[in-house]
Structure formats: structure tokens, C-alpha cells
Write a protein that binds this DNA or RNA. Structure first.
Lengths: 166, 166
DNA sequence: TTAATTCTTGACTAATTTACTCAGGTAAGA
DNA sequence: TCTTACCTGAGTAAATTAGTCAAGAATTAA
């Protein structure tokens, strides 16, 4: 179990998707502007999220990313381990090289702590954050104020249709 | 909240101290050999642990480090934040520069998750690992087999006394 | 008192990871 | 066909990690 800013970026970006889940795909450019993360860096993160089947990419105009599964089936632990890429296999690989028993001992204790942490984060889903009362409305409202995102896009569509008619 | 190998080193080293707590100070050289961490790197980690009042250093022959408080009053969260040195203040510092409300929104959600994690780790103490039935006996036994640590040091003292007598 | 031991501090460095840039692709819709 | 936006990979600057080296201070044992 590891937790760095990389994991935080992954989780916050996924929260963003979850909040806008029912309003079409979200572009990385939007997330980039909102969260202050470089676009290409996000592309790398989402490449991993895609490979781990956590998001679906939708190409072409109007495309972007959406959650691959319902928000209540995606845990924080999944996101972090997808992005942070577990490393660091314990040096004592249960062979002859672990000559000192006490190392193994504290290793075992650490493994247990790590497991507890993972289980804790497995029990927390995106939905617990996205579906809280008021959050969704607040998001739409704020998007609207800033004149971007999905609502802004819808407005553009309306404008284009009006032009076509006239 | 962050969690890297540095934090793991800190926690496992502290577990080591907790296990040997009632048998005098533990030297960094011992921990270094047991855990496979370089001595000087441990010195840096323990410098931080000392500044955060988690351990006491005992100088001179027979010295080493011991816990500054009982193991049941030291939480994992304390150790990690002492060693890992919280960084990364959120970019949106509640001033005018956070122009996009959605950023603030996901930031708040992240903060909440971070808090939950911290509270979880605050509820886990060193004692929960060190005081488990059998652990302590096992540690002594293994130390004995490897002929090092406190027991080995005691044996040396006995031998030296015998020399004095003869 | 002297020597050995062990903590304590600081400066410096190699390796790794993070965060980012650039530069080109490819698929899908208008 | 043109634009949009995903997708990929190579390369890079900055930060962090992990470690080395060297000197010094406190304490105990001889």
C-alpha cells in the first residue's frame, strides 16, 4: 500500500467523473483546468485507469472519459492501486536470504497493517462522495457559473441549432 | 496524508523498539542489520522521530533508542506524519486563485477522505502489534538464535564478569 | 583519565520517482 | 474532410529517496 500525490490526483479526477457521471463524458482538458494538473500527465494517469477497467474513453467530438462501472462499485483502494502501481516486494522473499527472524517478524506485522489499510480503503466508494445530498446540484451550479463543462457544451449545442434554423 | 516506503521504514523500526521495549535501548546498528536499512538513513529517520518526541536517544555504551512513551500511546498515524513530513498544501488556498468551484469541491472531498484515513491510522497503536500473545517470546527466541541484540549483550556482560572473577 | 561506544549533526551524492513536455498518432463525429 | 479528443511513447527537469562520508558530543567501562 502506497499513497502519494499521484494517488491523490487519480482519486480526485475520478471523483470529478463520478459527480458528472450522468451528464456525458468529461474531457481531460476540463479536468486539467479544474484541478491544475497538466493534460499530458492526466493522459498517463488515465491510461492506467483505462487498463485497469476503471474508466472508458470515448473518442471524437463530445467525447471524453466516463466511469466504466457505477460509482458505488469503484473503491478508493482500486483507484490508488491502479495509479500508484504497487511496487516494493519485501526484501525478505521467504527464501534463505532472510537470515534474521526479527526482520521477518516486523515484516509480518507491517503486512498486517498494510492489509488493514487496504481493507479500509476498499470499503470507501466513489459513490459515498459523489452521491451526497447537495453535491451534485452544487457541482452543476458551479459549472454553470464558470460557463464550462457539460452545461456549457449543451448551451453551445442549442446555439448551433438556432443558427441552423435561422 | 502520505504513505511511502519511508513511512514503512519508520513504522517497522518503531515496531522493533516496541517489541524490545522492556529490554533496554535498541541500537540503530541492530535495526540496520535486521531490517536491511542503511545506518545513516536510519539516523535521519530517527532524528525526525526524536524531534517529534516519539523516541529517546540514550548515548554511550549500552545505549540506543527507546520509545518516549508507552507503546499503547503511540499511533501509526503519528509515526507516519513524523517521518513522512506532511507536504503538499492544497493549491487552492482559499483565496482568489481558486477560480473554479469544482476544484474546490473535489478538494474538499479529498480532504475528507484524507481525514478518514488519518483517523483510522490514529486508532491503531504500536501496542496492538507488539503486545500480541506470543510475539514477544518469539522475538526473544529469534534474537537468541541469531546471537545478537539484547540477549547477546547480556551474555557478553556475563562473560566479562566471569573473566573479572577469574 | 582514557578509550570505546553510540547517539547526533550536517554536507554531499547517486538512483529513482514524479510531474511534465513534445510530437506524433488514431478513432469518431460534424 | 476537418475538428475534436483519445492514445502512445520518448524524453526531461525537479523532487524525493536512499545512501555515503565525516566530524563531534555524551556516556560508560577500563
Amino acid at each position: 500500500m502506497r499513497l502519494s500525490t499521484k494517488g491523490r490526483y487519480g482519486v480526485t479526477a475520478m471523483m470529478d467523473l463520478a459527480i458528472h457521471d450522468n451528464a456525458g463524458p468529461v474531457t481531460l482538458a476540463d479536468i486539467s483546468q479544474c484541478q491544475g494538473i497538466s493534460l499530458s500527465y492526466l493522459e498517463q494517469l488515465f491510461s492506467k485507469l483505462r487498463k485497469h477497467k476503471l474508466v472508458d474513453g470515448v473518442r471524437g467530438p463530445g467525447g471524453g472519459y466516463r466511469l466504466a462501472r457505477p460509482a458505488d462499485e469503484i473503491s478508493i483502494a482500486e483507484i490508488i492501486s491502479a495509479v500508484d502501481e504497487k511496487v516494493d516486494v519485501t526484501r525478505c522473499n521467504h527464501e534463505g536470504n532472510c537470515q534474521d527472524g526479527v526482520r521477518c517478524l516486523t515484516h509480518e506485522l507491517w503486512e498486517e497493517l498494510s492489509d488493514r489499510l487496504f481493507n479500509f480503503l476498499s470499503g470507501i466508494t466513489l459513490a459515498q462522495f459523489a452521491n451526497r445530498p447537495g453535491i451534485h446540484e452544487l457541482a452543476i451550479q458551479r459549472d454553470n457559473i464558470n460557463g464550462r463543462f457539460i452545461l456549457a457544451r449543451r448551451q453551445q449545442e442549442v446555439l448551433q441549432q438556432q443558427r441552423r434554423v435561422s
